[in-house]
Design a protein around this nucleic acid. Structure first.
Lengths: 389, 389
DNA sequence: GGATTATGCTCGTGCAACGAGGATAATCAC
DNA sequence: GTGATTATCCTCGTTGCACGAGCATAATCC
């Protein structure tokens, strides 16, 4: 399908404003002069566009940040205090978070709590979302959910860590605003590719290990997340032992080779109820216990092998890691590199894509989810809708 | 990396023309009214834009195609007879082709020949390209090469079918115009996703089998071909037997499970010198020979399994097939489907992405290579360069 | 406190597209 | 044939966005 260039006069009209707004979102510390330079705008245009954006309650100009440089200081463009907000919901392992994020990615409000894994959590979260919607009204423009599991559209089709299957998140959607649902690995990857270790690269492959392995390919800042948002479920490629059946229903999934389940198996332990915690313990004990060290090395090797396979297939500029993958890489770097090299096509071995560590912490997924939502809002239609109100 | 919106007044100015030109390229039979409707242009704008494009020798308006419909007939927009051309070079198995393709994808001239597999072929092809460049002068705006092998930038790093390794295609580049090199599977996939079986889908996974298996993921008409153009080398993911070493240097490559080498192995035959031909013969003999039928079924099953794994990871709307994959699917459909279903995550099995047959024949790669080049030409810079001449 | 440097604002200009209204070119019905 | 119908095309005045030159402004440097 050829990209249908949505062309119209209206599209042209808002393009300058849109470009500025996107830049402000991507570079929260940018000054007005920075933006003008980056976008190739004349100072006259910058004046006009920013005044329009200010009038629309989208950005504000704050006092110059006193850089100590010469010349007239340039005001910083930041999110307007009455500007659009994204409500981000994070459903992970044993915790949930509901936050409001403004343009630029700053978290404005955040609620957290623990949960037992019951799908009734969805109702609780819906109440939190509704409360935020009531409080901020029209300012809340989208709800973006980040889930530790496989998603398809707005449904969680499988979440090994939570024990959920086919849980619809429709109840989280307030009427009239979009609901987005994404896998946490994909969203961390998105944030990392844009604002973290992958920021300088055009094609970023991000991988994360928690329960199983996931990730995403990000090309020029756009996540390659497939038809339903399930793209990036690399953990269910059969890089592993064909004799092992995965909860997903397939066999030999890579998932089963790299996480707490794999390491427990290598130690002849029963499958852990909580693979995430088990993995953390085994990795921690690797410093003193040779058997644990071997188990970690095995997982790191399997991670490296799959990484090499994905590099062969997807040809990224860099590979970035987060979650337990960072611990595996730190604890057994030689095994990871060995597995990586062994799986790469020969021609790649001389200069393989570097493996970088994501600097984003646990907030990464939140920022990614907000970014995904702002991608929808920072469009001609999104701006139109905002201005009409 | 956030997409750096190349914003400028000049960008705005050419947008309408660009949108029209892209539409004409994607829909060669479109009338002027079609284009205006598809792009949401007023008839006044359409008049202005087309007259500008005609003046720039980019399109011409031909006599209305007498559809027999009511109302005033609308002229058809087609490539200008003095418009830009792309020189396409196809290096495949035992043949080469050098063609000129105009806007819209029509092949204007075509030379073909056979070759022995010697890398000296590059020099011969360079002469053909140079001859076309002399003949058409400035009209030739790009050279786009389609290779049956793994490419990185403008170098063929490995071509099992040709026996080449690290062959640079720089000599094919006339000075001052861009040289693009792509893998034939990726380019067939691009053409198929835009103009073939995948035209209606947003996310298309294309797979082709010749010697080994290759393909590409195409999202909204854009190929996901990685940092160096090597994206889509799915054949070198370890879905196969870890004991087998691939010419690429890795082990267990999927490549080795689905082509003539795999089927010969299943028949206890020695590795064929020409796996493509061997595969054709074995598939042909499957009608009468049960052992051949089993060998074909094995390859089809392996193809299906890998396809399922890729669907898990990439989440396409549809999967399209070309090359020998079509023959495998036709000869052993149950094995293909069985392998596919077995590798899919359970939640996908109820409604898996449909497997479609590519209607594009051997011209597919040519069209894909031309499309890839026109993607570069149908940009603000490309149009600027054309107009300046 | 003046020189330097960098940025912001004003204002006239230009371009691309819009939209309404009339002109044009085919088919259809009789 | 001839008029009705349908669909498209062209003309022209208007609009909105951005440009760019010139001047105004606000910091640091010496």
């Amino acid at each position: 399908m050829q990209p249908k260039s949505a062309h119209s006069a209206r599209a042209l009209r808002s393009q300058g404003a849109l470009a500025v707004l996107r830049h402000v979102h991507a570079h929260p510390s940018a000054t007005r002069a920075d933006v003008a330079r980056a976008l190739g705008l004349s100072s006259g245009s910058a004046t006009e566009i920013t005044s329009r954006l200010k009038a629309s309650r989208l950005v504000q100009e704050t006092a110059p940040p006193r850089t100590g440089g010469r010349g007239r200081p340039s005001p910083a463009l930041t999110a307007h205090p009455g500007g659009p907000l994204v409500c981000v919901v994070d459903i992970s392992h044993e915790e949930w978070r509901v936050a409001c994020v403004e343009l630029g990615g700053r978290v404005v409000t955040e609620d957290t709590g623990r949960h037992s894994g019951s799908p009734e959590l969805v109702g609780t979260l819906a109440e939190h979302v509704a409360a935020l919607h009531d409080r901020h009204g029209r300012r809340v423009r989208a709800v973006s959910v980040c889930v530790a599991g496989t998603v398809s559209g707005t449904t969680i089709v499988q979440a090994s860590g939570l024990g959920w299957r086919d849980v619809g998140l429709g109840p989280l959607k307030p009427p009239g605003i979009p609901l987005l649902v994404g896998n946490n690995a994909s969203l961390i990857g998105l944030a990392d590719a844009r604002r973290g270790a992958g920021a300088a690269a055009r094609v970023v492959l991000h991988l994360t290990v928690e329960v199983g392995v996931g990730g995403v390919l990000v090309v020029e800042g756009r996540p390659v997340d497939g038809a339903t948002g399930a793209g990036g479920e690399f953990g269910h490629m059969p890089f592993g032992d064909p004799a092992l059946e995965c909860p997903c229903g397939a066999r030999g999934c890579w998932d089963l080779e790299v996480d707490g389940r794999a390491m427990s198996r290598a130690l002849d332990r029963p499958p852990p109820a909580d693979p995430r915690t088990a993995a953390g313990e085994i990795i921690a004990s690797a410093a003193s216990d040779p058997r644990a060290r071997d188990a970690v090395a095995g997982a790191a090797h399997a991670l490296g092998r799959g990484m090499g396979a994905l590099v062969n297939a997807l040809d990224p500029d860099v590979v970035t890691l987060s979650g337990l993958a960072l611990d595996l890489a730190a604890t057994a770097p030689a095994s990871l590199d060995g597995g990586y090299a062994s799986a790469l096509m020969r021609y790649r071995r001389a200069g393989p894509p570097p493996i970088l560590r994501s600097p984003l912490g646990p907030q990464g997924a939140l920022v990614g989810a907000a970014d995904a939502a702002f991608d929808v809002l920072l469009t001609e239609e999104g701006l139109d809708a905002w201005s009409r109100g």
